[in-house]
Design a protein around this nucleic acid. Structure first.
Length: 835
RNA sequence: GCCGGGGUGGCGGAAUGGCAGACGCGGCGGACUUAAAAUCCGCUUCCCGUAAAGGGAGUGUGGGUUCGAAUCCCACCCUCGGUACCA
C-alpha cells in the first residue's frame, strides 16, 4: 500500500488548507453519493453471520415541499447514530420512506389546481434528492411510499381484520370537526380545542364515524415495562390514557322516567352523603326524558346554546359555570334523599357516565356551582379543625366521615372502601375504572388517504369489501370544488358499486383512513419490503423486531406512538406478530431554533440548500450536531458554522500532510503522549456517540485534531503512530461527516468504504497519564496545583501540597483541623485561626 | 392550575459532589501578504491592581446540607414544551 501525499498542501508549502489540495466539499460529496449508490454499501441483508441486527428507525417525513432545516437536524443525527452503530459491528438497517397521504396535497390541489398525486410524487422526488445530498446512508431498497396502492392495500386489509374481530366499528356520535380542513379529527389531534394541523377552532358534529377500539387496550397500554423510553413520553401517555378508579352509582329517577336511573361516576365515593344535586351533561340522553314541562323551554334553550359553543369556550376553566334545572329529582340510595337534577355544561358527555353527583363541600367545581344556584353545601368529610361552620371553599383532602349515617366516625379513607362495599352489596352500583382515552376516530372526510374498504347495501347493510378485491383504489384525475368536500363523495365511478353479498347496486364508503394508520405499522414493511401476497413476511419481521432504536419528535407522544403500540398489540392478538411492543428504545431529538425562536418559513426562515451549496453537507451535518445537546435541540447561528468548516479543513490538512520527515521509530515520550490522547479520544467519542451526545463527541475530535497537528509539528513521533492517529481520526469522523471521511480514507491509501470499517478500539489503561495535577485547597478554596506521580500515596500528595509556598501562606498561624484527600483530584486542608 | 425540560462568560454550550466556563463562535493582539481574503499563533468570566504578583466575586433568586455545591435538599422567580372543568 502506498501513501500518496502528492498534490496536497504540506504545512511548509503555503500553509494548511491552501494550494491545489484544498478541501472542496462540492466535488467530493457528489462523487461519493454516486459511488455509494452504485456500490450499494447501505443495502442490508436480513442476517449476517456474527453480527447482531440493529433496526435504526427514524420517523419518516411527510413530503411537503422541501426538506427543511428541522428535517436535517433530525435525519443527520439519526443517520450519524446509525452509521456509528454499524461501525460498532451491528448489522444496521436504516431505512427511509414517505408518509405521503395527507391534507397539504389536497390543499395544494384546491388552491393551485395541482393534482394531489402529482404534487406528492414530485415532492418525494425532491426529498430523495435532498436526502442523497445530505449523504444519508439509507437502504433505499426498502423504501416505502404510503400512498402507493401496494402499501395502502394493507391498511385496508388490516382494517378488515380489525372489523371482523370487533376492533373497528362504526358509530353515530359527536365527533371533533375542523371546519377549515372539512374533516373530523381524533381526540389526540385536537390541541387546546384547536385542530392540531391548522389551528382552527374545532367544533362538535354528530356524524356516523369509524373507530378503532384502542380503549380495549387501555390497561395494557399503561404497561411500559418492556420499553426503554424517555420517562417524559411514558408519562404523557399515562396521563393521556388517564386511568382513574372510582365507583359508579345509580340514582333512581323512576318518579320522572319509569325504570330509569342516573349513573354517576366518582372517585370520591366517601363524599356520597354530601350529594345535594345531580348534574347531567347537556348531551346526556336522559335530559329530554327528565325535563318537566315547566322547565322545557329553558332547558331546550340551554342545551341548544351549549351546542353552539366551541370546545374552547366550553372547557375554559375561567368561565363561570352555568346550569339549569330540569324540574326532576332523583333519590340518593344511601340516605334516601331526594335531590334536584340539573343540566350543566361543566359536565362532559364524553367522560365517565356524563353525569356527576354534586358534592359542593368536597369538590371545588360543585362548590362554585352550588354557591351560584343556592344549593345546599353539606360537609360529610370533616377536616381536623372544622368548627361545624360554613366552608369558604371545598375541602378536598381526607378527613373524618360526618353526616354519613352508619359511616360516621370513620376516616374518609376507610369510608371510601366501606361505602363502596355497601353499594356493591346492595346492587346500587360498582367499583369501576374509567379512562380519559377514547376510541381512535379513524374516519376522515378527505380524498388523499386510504379509502375505507366498506360497502353500504340497502339490503345487506354494512358489508366489508372482500379481501381479494383489495385494494380499493383512489380514483385518478379527480376534480376538487370550492366547497371543500372530498371528490370521492361525487365521483360516480368510485361511489357506485355492487354489493359483494347480494349483487345489488350499493355505495362505497367515502371516508378515508386517518394517516396515522399508515405509520402505525410501517416499520414492519421496512423489515419486509417485498413480501408478495402478505402484508409482510414473518421471518423477516422476526429478524428485525422490535425496532431497536426509534428516533423522532416528542410531538408524537400521544398520537403516532400510542397508535403504533395499539396497532402492534392488535396485530399480535390477531396472530400477525409475536411481540408486544413495536419500538424497544425511543430517543427524542430536540427542536432546532434560531435566534431563540421557532424556525418558520415566513417569519424566521432557514433554508438548508444554500448552506449546503456554500459549505457542504458534511459541514452542515456536523454543525447541526455541534450546536448543543441533540436531545434538547439547538440554537442556530449563521456565524458559528465557520468553526466546523475550519475544523473539517484541518482534518483535510492533517490527512494530507507529508510525513516523510517522520522516522521509523519515534521518541518514547511523544509516542506515549499521542497514544494516550488517541485512546482517550476513542473512549470519549464512543461513550458520547452512544448517548447521542454528538456535540461533545465533535469537541473531542477537534481536540484530537489539534493534538495530531502538534505531534506532527514537533516531528518526534513515528510514521506508524502518525498514520494510526490519522486513521483513528477519520474513522471517528466518518459517521458525522461521511463524505470527507470517505475521500480521505481513499487518499490515505485505503481500499473499500470507510463506512464498512469498524470503530477503533481503546484501552482504558492507556488513557491514564503518568503524572497528575492535584488541586490544593485551603478551606475549600483552590490555592495551588501540584504535579505528582499518578500512583502517589496520600502522605506524599499531602507533603507535596504543603510544600507549595502559595499554600503555606494560607496555613500560617492556623491550626489544621481536618484533611481531605481525594485520590487523583485534590487535597483540601481545613484550618482555623489559632486562638 | 397541574406535569416535564431548562436557566452557567458578549453568544452556542461543557462540567451531575472535587481546579466552573471544555469545544466552538465573536472580539482583541500578532505572523504570513504589496494589500485583502483565507490560514496559523496568542489572549479573552467579571471586579480591584498601570502591569505583574496577588486578592475578591461568580452558574436565575433566597435559604440549607457538606471539608467542598452549577451539581444534593427546601422555598420562590423566569422560560420553553405538554396538558387542562376528567367528576
Amino acid at each position: 500500500m502506498t501513501i500518496t501525499s502528492k498534490g496536497q498542501a504540506s504545512s511548509e508549502a503555503g500553509g494548511p488548507g491552501s494550494g491545489p489540495g484544498r478541501y472542496s466539499p462540492a466535488e467530493i460529496e457528489k462523487k461519493w453519493q454516486v459511488k455509494w449508490e452504485e456500490d450499494g454499501i447501505y443495502a442490508t441483508a436480513d442476517h449476517v453471520d456474527g453480527k447482531e441486527n440493529f433496526f435504526a428507525l427514524v420517523m419518516f417525513p411527510y413530503p411537503s415541499g422541501d426538506l427543511h432545516m428541522g428535517h436535517w437536524f433530525q435525519y443527520a443525527g439519526a443517520d450519524s447514530h446509525a452509521r456509528f452503530k454499524r461501525m460498532q459491528g451491528y448489522n444496521v438497517m436504516h431505512p427511509q420512506g414517505f408518509d405521503s397521504f395527507g391534507l397539504p396535497a389536497e390543499n395544494a390541489a384546491i388552491e393551485n389546481g395541482a393534482d394531489p398525486r402529482e404534487w406528492t410524487y414530485k415532492n418525494i422526488t425532491n426529498f430523495r434528492r435532498q436526502f442523497r445530498e445530505m449523504g444519508a446512508g439509507y437502504d433505499w431498497d426498502r423504501e416505502l411510499v404510503t400512498s402507493d396502492p401496494e402499501y395502502y392495500k394493507w391498511n385496508q386489509y388490516f382494517f378488515l381484520q380489525f372489523y371482523k374481530n370487533g376492533l373497528a366499528y362504526r358509530e353515530h356520535g359527536l365527533a371533533n370537526w375542523c371546519p377549515k380542513d372539512q374533516t373530523t379529527l381524533a381526540n389526540e389531534q385536537v390541541k387546546d380545542g384547536r385542530c392540531e394541523r391548522c389551528g382552527t377552532i374545532v367544533e362538535k358534529r354528530a356524524l356516523p364515524q369509524w373507530y378503532f377500539a384502542i380503549t380495549k387496550y387501555a390497561e395494557e397500554l399503561l404497561d411500559f415495562d418492556q420499553l426503554d423510553w424517555p420517562e417524559q413520553i411514558t408519562t404523557m401517555q399515562r396521563n393521556w390514557i388517564g386511568r382513574s378508579t372510582g365507583t359508579t352509582i345509580g340514582f333512581d329517577v323512576s318518579e320522572f322516567a319509569p325504570s330509569e336511573k342516573i349513573d354517576t361516576f366518582t372517585t370520591r365515593i366517601d363524599t356520597v352523603y354530601g350529594t345535594t344535586f345531580i348534574v347531567l351533561a347537556p348531551e346526556h340522553p336522559l335530559v329530554e326524558k327528565l325535563t318537566q314541562p315547566a322547565q322545557k323551554a329553558a332547558v331546550d334553550e340551554y342545551v341548544e346554546k351549549t351546542g353552539r359553543q366551541t370546545e374552547i369556550e366550553r372547557t375554559s376553566t375561567e368561565r363561570e359555570k352555568t346550569g339549569v334545572e330540569t324540574g326532576a329529582y332523583c333519590i340518593n340510595p344511601l340516605n334516601g334523599e331526594r335531590v334536584p337534577v340539573l343540566v350543566g355544561d361543566y359536565v362532559l358527555a364524553t367522560y365517565g357516565t356524563g353525569a356527576v353527583m354534586g358534592v359542593p363541600a368536597h369538590d371545588q367545581r360543585d362548590f362554585v356551582f352550588a354557591k351560584k344556584y343556592g344549593l345546599e353545601i353539606r360537609v360529610v368529610v370533616a377536616s381536623p379543625n372544622w368548627d361545624g361552620g360554613e366552608l369558604q371553599e371545598a375541602w378536598l383532602p381526607a378527613g373524618t366521615q360526618v353526616n354519613s349515617g352508619e359511616f360516621d366516625g370513620l376516616s374518609s379513607t376507610e369510608g371510601m372502601g366501606a361505602i363502596a362495599e355497601k353499594i356493591e352489596a346492595s346492587g346500587w352500583g360498582e367499583r369501576t375504572v374509567t379512562y380519559h382515552l377514547r376510541d381512535w376516530l379513524i374516519s376522515r372526510q378527505r380524498f388523499w388517504g386510504t379509502p375505507i374498504p366498506i360497502i353500504y347495501c340497502d339490503d345487506c347493510g354494512t358489508v366489508p369489501v372482500p379481501e381479494q378485491d383489495l385494494p380499493v383504489l383512489l380514483p385518478e384525475k379527480v376534480k376538487f370544488e370550492a366547497d371543500g368536500r372530498s371528490p370521492l363523495t361525487r365521483d360516480p365511478d368510485f361511489l357506485n358499486t355492487t354489493c359483494p353479498d347480494c349483487g345489488k347496486a350499493a355505495r362505497r364508503e367515502t371516508d378515508t383512513l386517518d394517516t396515522f394508520v399508515c405509520s402505525a405499522w410501517y416499520h414492519l414493511r421496512f423489515a419486509s419490503p417485498r413480501p408478495g401476497e402478505d402484508p409482510f413476511d414473518n421471518e423477516q419481521v422476526r429478524a428485525w423486531s422490535p425496532v431497536t432504536s426509534y428516533i423522532g419528535g416528542r410531538e408524537h407522544a400521544v398520537m403516532h406512538l400510542l397508535y403504533s403500540r395499539f396497532f402492534n398489540k392488535a396485530l399480535r392478538d390477531l396472530g400477525f406478530v409475536e411481540f408486544d411492543e413495536p419500538y424497544a428504545k425511543l430517543m427524542n431529538q430536540g427542536m432546532l431554533i434560531k435566534d431563540h425562536k421557532k424556525i418558520s418559513k415566513r417569519s424566521n426562515p432557514l433554508n438548508p440548500d444554500p448552506i449546503v451549496e456554500q459549505h457542504g453537507a458534511d459541514t452542515l451535518r456536523c454543525y447541526l450536531m455541534f450546536l448543543g445537546p441533540w436531545d434538547q435541540g439547538g440554537d442556530w447561528s449563521d456565524s458559528g458554522i465557520n468553526g466546523i468548516k475550519r475544523w473539517l479543513g484541518r482534518v483535510w490538512d492533517v490527512a494530507g500532510r507529508d510525513f516523510s520527515g517522520l522516522g521509523e521509530s519515534g521518541d518514547a515520550e511523544a509516542e506515549r503522549s499521542l497514544e494516550r490522547v488517541s485512546h482517550a479520544t476513542t473512549q470519549r467519542v464512543i461513550t458520547d456517540m452512544e448517548a447521542f451526545k454528538f456535540n461533545t463527541s465533535i469537541a473531542a475530535l477537534m481536540e484530537f485534531t489539534t493534538a495530531l497537528i502538534h505531534a506532527h509539528d514537533a516531528g518526534k513521533i513515528s510514521v506508524r503512530s502518525w498514520r494510526a492517529g490519522v486513521e483513528r481520526l477519520l474513522l471517528h469522523t466518518a459517521p458525522l461527516a461521511p463524505h470527507i471521511a470517505e475521500e480521505l480514507w481513499e487518499r490515505t491509501g485505503h481500499t473499500g468504504s470507510i463506512h464498512l470499517e469498524m470503530n477503533p478500539e481503546f484501552d482504558e489503561a492507556l488513557t491514564a497519564t503518568e503524572t497528575i495535577t492535584l488541586a490544593v485547597q485551603v478551606n475549600g478554596k483552590v490555592r495551588d496545583q501540584v504535579e505528582v506521580p499518578a500512583d502517589v500515596n496520600q502522605d506524599d500528595a499531602v507533603a507535596a501540597a504543603k510544600a507549595s509556598s502559595k499554600v503555606a501562606r494560607h496555613l500560617e498561624g492556623m491550626i489544621e483541623v481536618k484533611l481531605i484527600y481525594v485520590p487523583g483530584r485534590l487535597v483540601n486542608i481545613v484550618v482555623r485561626p489559632q486562638v
